[in-house]
């Protein structure tokens, strides 16, 4: 029995690893075709993809609605910036450490959230997202208020440039984001296929039945928050490394953007998370491609991306609640 279960674990890990490596190869190949701007956009896709995965795990798989993932991203961002500025740590050390601090934030949130449900949980998390500017200004000497903490990915190390040539700034952003996105994908893929993933799904589907089958329901809920926060923190750390960690980098709209991406793509699947992220990041550019032919005033064109993504969101919820990746998912059911 033990051997079989070990074998299963291994094959899950292998499938996830293959999936991840294919993903990395695809991103590198696509990135090579892109110009600098789109490489930067692709980096944003990877960064937010990690954040959307946190929503997928929390809301899609475990059924806990959070409107404050942006706040957990801010925890990751501020941790990284403070470690890099005050302790002169390299980003390769600061980012993993900040994942730990976000996990701790998630633990605290999870302990509270284990007692909350539905709208109460959504409300609590929303308040946390709203509180960020106030916290940043209240502890001005540490968080530097609205001015924020400027950090960036800097330059690639010499050996990298020697080996692969000098990358552009956006290209380097992409290369920095890629390994982290790959690790996140690997873990998410593993969790979803494993026993833990099944337990979390069962919490979502029927709490009573889950408790009756012997799952420690409160403890699992806390685990969900810890893992999801780690993902959000990692995403926030990388998002801050684009230039600045400050309240205007992690507005409430960022939390909503993650949720939008998750729903559009398909909130219960990893593929859906990726598709959704691509849609929300590139939508303004696609709209511009179409608008180029029309002389629209800024008054109209500036509001179009928000309008269209809202429309897509409504249409998704009404017509295809499982999102773009949902069709496949339905078949599996």
């Amino acid at each position: 029995m033990r051997a079989v279960s070990n074998h299963n674990k291994k094959s899950i890990a292998r499938t996830s690893l293959i999936r991840t490596l294919l993903f990395v190869a695809a991103i590198l190949l696509v990135g090579a075709q892109f110009d600098a701007y789109n490489q930067g956009q692709l980096a944003v896709v990877l960064i937010l993809f990690i954040g959307v995965l946190s929503v997928t795990l929390l809301t899609g798989i475990s059924g806990q609605l959070s409107l404050g993932q942006g706040a957990l991203m801010a925890v990751g961002g501020y941790s990284t910036a403070l470690l890099m500025i005050n302790y002169k740590l390299s980003l390769w050390v600061a980012v993993p450490l900040s994942v730990i601090s976000s996990a701790i934030a998630g633990l605290l949130l999870g302990i509270a959230a284990a007692r909350l449900r539905g709208p109460y949980l959504a409300g609590t998390t929303l308040v946390i997202a709203l509180a960020i500017p106030t916290i940043a200004n209240r502890f001005m000497s540490v968080f530097k208020g609205d001015e924020g903490l400027p950090v960036d990915v800097g330059y690639p190390p010499q050996w990298f440039s020697n080996l692969f040539g000098e990358p552009g700034y956006e290209q380097w952003q992409l290369y920095v984001a890629l390994p982290f996105a790959a690790i996140a994908l690997f873990f998410a893929s593993n969790i979803l296929k494993s026993r833990t993933g099944r337990m979390w799904r069962s919490i979502r589907d029927n709490e009573t039945a889950t408790s009756l089958s012997g799952v420690n329901f409160s403890r699992q809920k806390i685990y969900v928050f810890v893992i999801s926060s780690s993902f959000a923190g990692l995403s926030g750390a990388l998002y801050g490394l684009r230039g600045l960690v400050g309240p205007s980098v992690y507005p409430v709209s960022l939390s909503l953007l993650l949720l939008t991406a998750a729903v559009l793509g398909g909130i219960r699947s990893i593929t859906g998370a990726f598709i959704g992220t691509v849609i929300v990041v590139f939508l303004p550019d696609w709209i511009d491609l179409v608008l180029v032919n029309f002389e629209l005033s800024e008054q109209v064109s500036n509001y179009l991306p928000a309008l269209i993504s809202s429309l897509l969101l409504i249409l998704t919820v009404v017509i295809n609640p499982a999102g773009v990746a949902g069709t496949r998912l339905h078949k599996h059911k």
Partner: peptide, 19 residues
């Protein structure tokens, strides 16, 4: 996995274009 890893290194080299 080995094949994909090899492809990855190739892709990385390909994608690093000069300034």
């Amino acid at each position: 996995i080995a094949v994909i890893s090899a492809a990855l290194v190739g892709a990385l080299a390909l994608s690093a274009m000069p300034a």
